[in-house]
Design a protein around this nucleic acid. Structure first.
Lengths: 218, 218, 218, 218
DNA sequence: AATGAATGAGGATTCATTCAT
DNA sequence: CATGAATGAATCCTCATTCAT
């Protein structure tokens, strides 16, 4: 609360970002309807009226929050995909690990929770989220699987469903942490899950009678 | 939903259930804050005031919706687990398939969406959902994995993380369908996903040079 | 940011007048409450803050608008009255015609509309308008009538009511044009009305059986 | 059971009228923007929320006020016109007198003031007012004049402008009273004005050398 | 039990006004 | 002098909740 530093006015450029950041916190905590503009303003360190210098409506702020969260991470995902072209057995764990890192660092999980809860009230945001995040990720994973299949690395099957097999556990874990937080039982560690799941989905959970004993424990 | 029973004077005991069913529809569509008691009452075929004959507050109705959705399905899951004690390689696909059926039939996905969105506003409901649904399912899967490991059927590793590997894709697919609905690209088929994912997570997606061709289709 | 282009040219004295002119346009269009200071500033080509260099409040601007519109026209009316001292039969049409010209040229009708609408919110302005415009005009007309009566030119009767008989049609026509504008049926032509009404109120609309046919068109 | 029991409920039927009556008072006093819904509700003896049981928005109430004021008086005007078919010299004073009575009894002057002030903000209401009140009155007067001309009773000239000559003074006087109220100099008496103006506009203000001396003094 | 008219606290939004630059 | 970002009081409107019928 106490801000000793003299607040230099003329924040015109920085303000929108500060407001969006504050709004993300409040929306993630209270949901869209539960969030009070007054709280968002307070957290952003501005007055209620100042919000309307940069955004038309509460919905507008919400949209900005979702869009702002999506854009940079979207680029990161695409970059990760294009950067590597090795064998699927190495690519999959790398991608899951990177996904774990992304989820831990960014506010994507919080935004995901918001979008899930408000998907019916903001169909256009759901569409943005779908088109720019979920579909991109699924298409990426599907493409990797398809390539692996073409190379004879991966078993036959629907690449799109395999995409769910690959990233589903990460999504579930992320939402688990976001929804139940520390209020519930110990949340899963994302990096550990990424590693163990990569091995499981690549090599299988079953201990093959033909496999060497060392295979299961790297 | 069928109205083959005489309508007059059958209400008394049926009313709360009808209200909860109506509320589930409205809450699933609009979210907690967006749902109007007037709409719930209209859908239930009663007056606004009548809601207060059976429930104290709007929150009370919401809690009843969540609890009502949880209870019976919870039993089904436990029953399914206890009923079968075969090899993990057969149990896992069966459970995933049953899970797919459960998700398709019940309103669990809709309630899950609601709980995710309102988890911060209703910590107690999040806790109920966690304790009675999520934790139970995870514990169940973990126990099955641990048993399989003890029997030498499953590879070593954290059984809890394996639980995410098992059910995560189903959860993701269910939410995908719930959130994006028909407005987005083709939603994944749950049964197909259950089958393919079971094979993938059990035997691995990779084509092992040592594996026999028949391994993929048991 | 630093913009070294010196904008201050020569305004200083012209500014208040420009602001008042802009305000008149906006007030006439939106009414007092509906007018936004931002719009007035924009139309005057100054910043919002600049308004406060010349006026204390929004009300202050409104008062200035009304007063500014009143003052010069007031002079014109008095001058017209004092300038001529001929027979009433010639004076009346001349005054009505001059009134028509004044109404068509000045923004008096627009200000009249504003004052009518805001008379209860700005009793002091209503008083100014009454004392400086309406009463002056009525008193002037009354005085002319009284003089005509004293000279035996005009029939007996309340000079004040005769004043309404004289100028009422002009007022009504002016308001008709101001309120309904071009959105309604053809507005009356003020000069034509002035001429025809002068003849009617002086000589009567009825065709007297005793009057010669030429009487109606002198 | 039969649902057609008399609705003694509350005031469901009477309320809208009460609200409109209260709103007319407040709107007339404060103007549209200046009127607070809270004040309207208080004057109507209901809560703020109750207003929204009967009207959608503040604008909706305003429209209802204007429309409600127009409708019944409209009928009265038309009836008066159709009822009488005597000589113009008798019809004109009768109509002016009736107009004076109507203005004194009804809230038409107050509504007129509102419409004048808000004509730009509510063009549709201005149109209603024009089409249903002003045009009707002008057309009516014009028709009477035209008929009188056809009968050789009235002098030639534009009947529409004559209509302004006839009713303009009444309109001006009514607005004078409404705008300046008792705060200003003595307001004109409507009935006296109707009588004196009728004589003036019929027979002329000038004393004709040919007229008998007794004609000018009733 | 059931109704639905009525309530009023709560919150999004506007805009006259201020003041640091 | 001039600016325009910032403020916050004011007010419309919503809707969960109550209660007379």
């Amino acid at each position: 609360m106490a801000d000793d530093a003299p607040k230099w006015r003329r924040r015109k450029t920085a303000r929108p970002g500060e407001i969006v950041a504050a709004a993300l916190d409040i929306f993630a905590d209270k949901g869209f309807a539960g969030a009070k503009l007054e709280d968002i303003a307070a957290r952003a360190g501005v007055s209620k009226g100042a919000l309307y210098l940069y955004f038309e409506t509460k919905e507008d702020i919400f949209r900005a929050v979702v869009r702002t969260a999506v854009a940079p991470n979207l680029h990161a995902i695409r970059a990760a995909a294009a950067a590597f072209d090795g064998p699927f057995a190495l690519l999959a764990p790398m991608l899951l690990s990177r996904m774990a890192g992304l989820m831990a660092q960014s506010r994507l999980p919080a935004v995901a929770k918001m979008v899930i809860g408000e998907s019916r009230n903001f169909p256009d945001l759901a569409k943005i989220w779908h088109d720019d995040v979920v579909s991109v990720a699924i298409d990426l994973a599907s493409a990797l699987v398809a390539r692996a299949q073409a190379r004879g690395e991966a078993a036959p099957g629907d690449p799109r469903l395999y995409a769910f097999s690959l990233v589903g556990p990460m999504i579930m874990a992320v939402l688990f942490r976001e929804v139940f937080g520390e209020a519930a039982s110990e949340p899963p560690d994302l990096q550990s899950l990424a590693m163990q799941h990569a091995r499981a989905v690549l090599h299988g959970m079953l201990i093959s009678p033909h496999a060497s004993p060392g295979e299961a424990a790297p």
